[in-house]
């Protein structure tokens, strides 16, 4: 199962990078979303895919009696999904506000913070 999923991660990252190369901020954000999913999937694969049982310990026992799946990567992914959701939601809200205030999503036309011709000394 690792092989096909690794290919899926590769496709997600390739598509994400392609989208992020666009000048349009919204495309950039969609690219980030795809890569963030690819990262989560990569952690999932890194925890090894098995057909083992859920990691539940029967009552009265100290350790699982049979081979169980590794629950840690899933806990990590859950944390990463929550954090990623927050960050991407913020980024989307910011992009919406930028569009309202600056009237464009083309990053090449956002030159307020870094003007093309900054103020110079008069002698220059």
């Amino acid at each position: 199962m690792e092989g096909p999923l690794a290919v899926v991660v590769g496709i997600l990252i390739a598509t994400g990078v392609y989208l992020m190369l666009a000048r349009d901020l919204l495309h950039y954000l969609f690219g980030l979303v795809l890569i963030s999913n690819a990262a989560n999937l990569a952690i999932f694969i890194a925890g090894r895919l098995t057909r083992a049982s859920p990691p539940l310990i029967p009552e009265g026992q100290e350790a699982p009696q049979i081979v169980v799946a590794n629950p840690l990567p899933q806990a990590l992914i859950l944390t990463a999904i929550v954090i990623g959701f927050g960050l991407l939601a913020f980024a989307l809200a910011l992009i919406a506000q930028v569009y309202r205030e600056l009237g464009t999503l083309d990053v090449d036309r956002m030159r307020i913070a870094e003007p093309v011709r900054p103020k110079r000394k008069k002698s220059l």
């Binding site: 963030s36 690819a38 990262a39 960050l87 992009i95 506000q97």
Partner: peptide, 20 residues
């Protein structure tokens, strides 16, 4: 907003690299 969008965009990439 103009400066912020560049900061956010590039730092999110760093976050994803770190997570991966």
């Amino acid at each position: 907003l103009d400066g912020g969008i560049k900061y956010v965009a590039l730092n999110l990439v760093s976050t994803l690299l770190m997570l991966t």
